[in-house]
Design a protein around this nucleic acid. Sequence first.
DNA 1: TTGTAAGCGTTATCAT
DNA 2: ATGATAACGCTTACAA
Lengths: 342, 342
Amino acid sequence: MAHTLEEIAKLAGVSRSTVSRVINDHPNVRPEVRERVWQVIREVGYQPHAAARSLATNRTQVLGLIIPQAVTTLFTDPFFPHLIQGMAEACNAHRYHLMLSLFTGRTDQESLYRRVLRSGTLDGVVVASTTLDDPLIPRLLQEKLPFVSVGRHREAAVSYVDVDNVAGARQAVEHLLRQGHRRIATVTGPLAMMAGRDRLEGYRQALEARGVPVDDALIAEGDFTEEGGRMAMQRLLPHRPTAVFVASDTMAVGAMKAIKEAGLRIPEDVAVVGFDDLPVASIVEPALTTVRQPIERLGATAVEVLIGLIEQQAEAPQHIILPTQLVIRASCGALSGSRGLE
Amino acid sequence: MAHTLEEIAKLAGVSRSTVSRVINDHPNVRPEVRERVWQVIREVGYQPHAAARSLATNRTQVLGLIIPQAVTTLFTDPFFPHLIQGMAEACNAHRYHLMLSLFTGRTDQESLYRRVLRSGTLDGVVVASTTLDDPLIPRLLQEKLPFVSVGRHREAAVSYVDVDNVAGARQAVEHLLRQGHRRIATVTGPLAMMAGRDRLEGYRQALEARGVPVDDALIAEGDFTEEGGRMAMQRLLPHRPTAVFVASDTMAVGAMKAIKEAGLRIPEDVAVVGFDDLPVASIVEPALTTVRQPIERLGATAVEVLIGLIEQQAEAPQHIILPTQLVIRASCGALSGSRGLE
DNA sequence: TTGTAAGCGTTATCAT
DNA sequence: ATGATAACGCTTACAA
């Protein structure tokens, strides 16, 4: 069933090295010989043994996606499936494989780190949604394993791929300002994550550009979960915002619940804008105005950058920022124009 | 940086074989020697080279999750993230790794099959949501690679883990019958999938047990997508059902849209029950009554069964069915009791 | 252009 | 209880 180079060689009447050359597309093989060898390979359905090859070349053709402990609960967020889908497509296209390492609750971190990072199983790693001080990053830097972060990182040496969170948030808030809103609140993401900080920064920039003072009472930190969004919104409501920019759609769903529970209408009493454009954004009522980010492209790009690093077509650090796009639906009040504030 | 057995041996003043024995917990090593070797290993942070080990043992400690082409669009369904989470946890617990193979659109199927199944990279495979005639199954059978299907399969030789779709659907429909409904429609899953068929079978059984005739006009096939659910419901509405059992929550969201678009109320005019208990079930309005399935446990169980097969603690085929649970919310009208039909 | 042979880092068999 | 030594299946100088 499982053949070896040696057998193919015998069947084709050549030596092991010649078969190897054929398989690896080396020059210096007579065309007729090459063809004969391929013939045999196809006939018997030969497939090189990955481990043996990897032992000889010190390459595995396997990339890892590492999602740190803290976010495994968030794995239910559609962000990750999209990211993975993008990564998987890019991997397939480049003939790499994708290994998934979720640092789940009871896992012994250290042993998993070692098994994953030091056993030579991975040619490179994509890390997603780390916190700013995640110990994984220095660790990776020190292992000298090629890696790319999905999400900006302050450490200059880190290669990353990200969307333009600052600009996206700024657009969202500018849109609300254009509607005439002045008391605009925000539910931020975790400020321990760059995405959380960047979206808050975009909020600030938009207000300041318009000369609207930033009021700390109108800023509440969330944790990217629905329940977190709901609780943050409850803290904001007493300060009477007329609009709120929520840093993720999932949190926005929670925020909308809080608003409705308080007996207020969306968008008449409080306009809402989210971030992500997840499917849920068009399911909720009213449909959610939000900032769309190209998550699959983010994943594909991360893989491509990583492969570039591995195959040394590029040097670390690589920094790539993808654009976002404001998607206007009913929750911001711009469609009905009913506020008449334009 | 990357040490070898040889180096550890030298540092500990023993032979390579002794170090190997220590690492693999073989008996016949003097306790003091064992301790000395571990000491060195810890000091230098040695980690065995996976490829070398795998070449010698013919084991990789890697399991594959294969999702066939047709469903990659469905990867956005929260079903997969949950499944993966369960699988990842089980893998971590048993010191296996998880490799993800999505058969994405433009992929060359055959070459990916070969690279994945015949290169010896995987000790075993979990396949998810195959269609009944998916060529992958016979292929796997023939490769003699241990594998487990998430989802029942008619081929007797196939090991599988599944939830009790028939009983779950039956419960759902029985619940509607108990509410007094008689014109109960159903939006099925794809009938090319076992889950689609089984849930339809449960629907049938419930009706027949009550002596309610099964009316084909009240059965419409969906495809597990929201839009598919909406379209199927549109076909059903002219036949005036007073209730509908939708074979997935995602489709139920679409069905609810269709009902509302037709100017009907839920549950007063049409009661709705879904299947899955995804997060969206509690987000829609009214909240969706649905059949909860233990998706993470499904994933974990699949991995455990697979490992049993690989390590030969069990013989194929293994068949495991997990129970479901009816979750009653507002969309079926049972909470308000407003239909007064009880 | 092709073949020979020496690794790659383990495990496993056999002596000792 | 420990140490040589031969695999495992491939790549890659080096020779021819």
